[in-house]
């Protein structure tokens, strides 16, 4: 922890905080991420999104994950990391494609080097190792940051990915957002390890845990891990301890498995308030700048709202278009069948 929950530098923080520009950029990102989370929640209530797994309260992790990467690097998000993808520069409307229902991945993963969001847990981690190993074979200095949650650390793919990364010294940073719950199941039922960061030990990977609501500490730890990976020193595991302030999704009822007191306690450790307090106390942030950040966040929300409210007529041909490079003869027949059905429906109208 570099900044305590009240925004005061800790003993460790004094003298080792990231520079003011990085902190301001992070704050702007978190304000935009929070606004994006709120906007997506509204769009669910309005029926414009089928579902939204919110990262409300986890904005420091979301923003830091994107901020520590260079342009050519790769980010492997989970389905809860839409705000991280937006912070990385993915279009906020496209990033919600999966949840809007137009298509599975709404964005081109190669545009910002952000892997597609999917719902299976930890399966993206071996992919991240493969991308990193290919980067090494190709002689590029690409680093891959792969995200997962506390629940995903129980999956076999998490362990296989860490092991592969270690054996091949792949330039991967595994970033676990420990938000204390896997839907309803608390951390104590996922793991008896002293910390999730300990899970690196068995694979020969350094593990570090960090206050996941302290953007300054996250930038510090993750940047060092990314730099280390870039120099060829191998992978690292970082556990960010944070909290999922909202339910798993809108379809979940968090009151069935946790107390309001617990939520209140974590809300007091809010990552945005903490950094804002510090930056104002230091005279780095003033009202003009704060208003500019709020305005930029509002702009993201506006674009998100507009884009999601715009209905895109789905093309039935798309059902068959992307299964293979060339459709099989069977898919050609099935496409003709669907077209025929639709044309007859059209005839009945």
């Amino acid at each position: 922890m570099l900044l305590d929950p009240d925004g005061r530098p800790t003993a460790a923080g004094k003298g080792s905080l990231p520079d003011a520009e990085a902190l301001l950029r992070g704050l702007a990102g978190m304000i935009a991420a929070r606004r994006f989370n709120e906007q997506a929640g509204v769009l669910v209530r309005q029926g414009r999104l089928a579902v939204y797994p919110s990262s409300y309260g986890q904005e420091a992790c979301q923003v830091a994950a994107a901020q520590v990467l260079a342009d050519g690097d790769w980010l492997f998000p989970t389905y809860r990391d839409t705000a991280a993808a937006v912070a990385r520069g993915v279009d906020p409307v496209e990033v919600l494609g999966l949840l809007k229902g137009d298509w599975h991945s709404g964005y081109d993963p190669y545009e910002r080097n952000v892997a597609p969001l999917t719902t299976p847990l930890a399966t993206q981690l071996p992919h991240a190792v493969g991308v990193a190993h290919a980067a090494r074979l190709r002689g590029t200095r690409t680093v891959v940051l792969a995200m997962c949650g506390d629940g995903a650390t129980s999956e076999g793919d998490f362990h296989e990915a860490l092991n592969f990364a270690a054996v091949f010294r792949a330039p991967v940073v595994f970033f676990v957002q420990n938000n204390q719950y896997a839907i309803s199941v608390p951390l104590a039922r996922q793991s008896a390890a002293p910390s999730l960061a300990h899970k690196g030990v068995g694979y020969g990977i350094p593990g570090e845990h960090v206050d996941g609501n302290d953007l300054a500490a996250l930038l510090d730890v993750l940047s060092r891990a990314v730099d280390r990976a870039r120099t060829g020193a191998g992978p690292q595991l970082v556990e960010g301890r944070t909290y999922r302030i909202q339910a798993h999704t809108n379809a979940d009822d968090a009151t069935r498995y946790r107390s309001d007191d617990e939520v209140t306690e974590w809300a007091a450790k809010d990552p945005i308030a903490r950094l804002e307090t510090y930056l104002r106390a230091e005279g780095i942030l003033d009202d003009t700048r704060a208003a500019a950040f709020a305005g930029a966040a509002e702009e993201v929300a506006h674009r998100t709202r507009d884009g999601i409210n715009r209905d895109v007529e789905p093309n039935p041909d798309d059902l068959f278009r992307f299964v293979y490079a060339e459709p099989t003869p069977q898919l050609v027949e099935q496409l003709a069948m669907v077209r025929d059905e639709l044309s007859r429906e059209e005839g009945h109208r």
Binding site: H127, V129, G130, V131, A132, H133, A134, A135
Partner: peptide, 9 residues
């Protein structure tokens, strides 16, 4: 999974 990532890159 490693093969997926290699192919992606």
């Amino acid at each position: 999974g490693f093969a997926v990532g290699l192919a992606m890159n």
